[in-house]
Design a protein around this nucleic acid. Sequence first.
DNA 1: AAAAACACTTGATCCATATCAACTTGCGCT
DNA 2: AGCGCAAGTTGATATGGATCAAGTGTTTTT
Lengths: 251, 251
Amino acid sequence: MNGRKIISFENIKVACRNCSLTTLCLPMGLEPDDVEKLDDIVKRNRPLHRGDHLFRDGDRFHSLYVVKTGSVKTYAPSEDGGEQVLGFHLPGELIGLDAIEHEMHNCSAKILETSAVCEIPFEHLEELSSTIPSLQHQMFRLLSREIGHDEGMLTLLGKKNAEERLAAFLVSLSDRFKRRGFSSTDFYLSMSRHEIGNYLGLAVETVSRLFTRFQEEGLLNVERKHIQLLDTDKLHNIVQGEDSDSKRQYP
Amino acid sequence: MNGRKIISFENIKVACRNCSLTTLCLPMGLEPDDVEKLDDIVKRNRPLHRGDHLFRDGDRFHSLYVVKTGSVKTYAPSEDGGEQVLGFHLPGELIGLDAIEHEMHNCSAKILETSAVCEIPFEHLEELSSTIPSLQHQMFRLLSREIGHDEGMLTLLGKKNAEERLAAFLVSLSDRFKRRGFSSTDFYLSMSRHEIGNYLGLAVETVSRLFTRFQEEGLLNVERKHIQLLDTDKLHNIVQGEDSDSKRQYP
DNA sequence: AAAAACACTTGATCCATATCAACTTGCGCT
DNA sequence: AGCGCAAGTTGATATGGATCAAGTGTTTTT
């Protein structure tokens, strides 16, 4: 059916129902029968490498993408060469939802480390979800979740200081790794300090200094990309805007 | 059918197909027949007044809301009494999409001026859109649009300075008024300076000073809530990050 | 294996915007 | 109609984080 048979990766038996992301990804709450139908429309491409683009700003929209392994960043490029990092996407996370409206991508998606990504042709998905109410519901939920997530980021950028932003970033990663069965306290960052700073609305130097300070304060160990969280309680407190020493006269 | 007959506002003949918001609101691209079905599920409540809440953070989610006339702000309250303004909603704009995921509102919606608002019970809407593919498609588009809009705000808060933020805010309002058939250069703000500042991640004083400066520079006239845009070209340039005098050495 | 390019860190300085303070204006309420 | 308070303005000062600068460590290229 698919012309490319030379590289056998596509033939490996990987189905949605076997996918370890099953509770994170689309099928949640679907009948086995329906999962099979979904499975049929998902394309599984060969692994992608650091720097590859899934799509670019301005590309015509055809498919949503789900990270299977690895990680992907999305960013909005601006004319002058600058960019705003919009998100870092871990296994099970859906990419491309913002392109549905205009049938055109208005951000770019770049692979951060060797990754496997499922492609879901949107027209097929739409057809399928009009015949499977629980899939339609799941789609609404996923889109809604993305909106909720973005609203959280708006609060982060609008109200939080540098320290709170980095703490929130680390806690978010930690939680997401945990849900995926990885260590929540010991992980590697696939993005650069520059990308973290860009995402959080901070300069690289500020991110670097904060890592140093968090380490000095015993909150974590950091060695280049390798992070070990040591005091997640205190990190959570920082996210809430409660600096242990200063501030906080009356609750 | 509806218990409350005392106040006759509900009986006024206002249907989706007559609604002046028709191209902005849901029905776009629907058959007349389908519009009628949608019309049947929309509840039209009596007018709401400044300070009223459509819903509050934590409320169970039942319905989406569409502003018919007036304006509404949504905001995420924080424990300590602070808040982050998430958006200002004009006629034709949909409110509550972020609540679908958890069937619970995670922001509050407050009326800014006497407003009429349509209520769309989400369960009915969902049923209907599983039988009308073009309605399902329209729903996906609306959700996607919201995501795209939020991503634009992330760039605004992450990368733009105070001047660019206020200019972007004014240009956005101007465009939206225009699309609704109001003047794009002469309008009243229904929100306070404080709310504008909160929305844009700026202090009230900064907003006030910027209005004064924009007026001094001949970009606009401002008298309390009344705004007259005088040089929309220059405002657009500011949004793009091109300050006329300074900056801009090489393109 | 050396060289070049890049990623990160650390220190010194600057500046945009927050914060504090005082005053003015307009509006809701009795 | 006028009191009282909230909203807005304007000025003075403070500061968090940006920017500039210089150096170190790491990865990629040749």
